[in-house]
């Protein structure tokens, strides 16, 4: 049964109120604080031009996010490829393992890395015991540590959209390329990779956006040396109580994400990127 348009809106009204009140409201509030605290105006945003600290933090965030996205997507692509080409039961097992990894808390994962790769971690003490190294390798409490932790956390997010894109490829297209004389490499670069591009774009977008807001991993694995935006915001809110600066940084993140999605939408339909029907 089809409802007339008006009563249709009525049905989603509770949901709209919920989204408006609990989601849009706070966001608008943050935007409001960013231009009113401590004094009305764009003083908070002006700090971006004057404060080296802020610029360094934003640069670190951007750098870490880009590197992490690149590694996550490349690793995710390989895993998705293996999954798509695995036989039925093996594929189900791989999907299962992937989903399980979503359920493991980020804290557990982060501290596991510390135990594995820390100064007195399993790897370092093992290598020392074997006499391969004399001093522990600094895997953790630096940018490398943050990257290891973040990539590890983000790979499953990268796998899913790429896996979906790969599954939608008609295997006969690949056979067609081979039958027409395309080598394995040619078939991959000229047929397979372009056809999985929507998946790659979706994965990059998802990973990058989640990365921007990472808090726990940089805080724990960076050992205070890799200060990213999210951690800095929390410091502003909880310790130095400069809510204006914090709100401004949050707004910058929000606008960054929106700008990114707008740019992507210029290049391809977002509906195909996010698994909508292909036209």
């Amino acid at each position: 049964m089809r409802l007339p348009l008006k009563s249709g809106w009525l049905l989603v009204l509770p949901f709209l109120l919920l989204v408006g009140g609990l989601f849009l409201g706070p966001i608008l509030n943050v935007l409001w604080i960013s231009v009113t605290d401590p004094a009305p105006g764009f003083g908070n945003y002006a700090q971006l031009g004057s404060s080296d600290t802020l610029r360094r933090i934003l640069w670190t965030t951007l750098r870490v996010c880009v590197i992490c996205t690149a590694f996550s997507v490349i690793l995710g692509y390989s895993i998705a490829y293996a999954m798509v080409h695995a036989a039925g039961p093996a594929q189900s097992r791989m999907v299962g393992l992937l989903l399980i990894s979503f359920w493991i808390s980020v804290l557990v994962r982060t501290f596991s890395w510390l135990m594995l790769l820390g100064r007195n971690g399993v790897v370092n003490s093992g290598l020392e015991a074997l006499g391969i190294i004399t001093a522990p390798i600094a895997f953790m409490r630096n940018e490398l540590g943050v990257l290891i932790g973040m990539v590890h956390y983000m790979v499953p997010y990268a796998v899913l959209p790429i896996f979906a894109a790969m599954q939608s490829i008609d295997g006969r297209v690949v056979q067609a390329s081979r039958s027409l004389g395309g080598s394995g490499a040619q078939t991959f670069w000229r047929i397979y990779l372009p056809l999985t591009k929507p998946g790659i774009v979706a994965a990059s977008l998802v990973v990058f956006i989640i990365n921007l807001g990472f808090y726990v991993i940089p805080a724990v694995l960076g050992g205070g040396k890799v200060l990213m935006v999210a951690e800095y915001i929390s410091v502003q809110v909880l310790i130095t109580l400069q809510w204006g600066t914090a709100a401004m940084l949050a707004a910058i993140l929000l606008f960054g994400v929106l700008a990114l999605m707008f740019l992507m939408s210029r290049f391809m339909k977002l509906s195909t990127v996010f698994g909508g029907a292909r036209t």
Partner: peptide, 14 residues
């Protein structure tokens, strides 16, 4: 397959 030099028309065209 790619060295056999056979043309092929697939079901569904591919």
């Amino acid at each position: 397959a790619e060295k056999r030099n056979f043309g092929m028309v697939f079901q569904g065209y591919a």
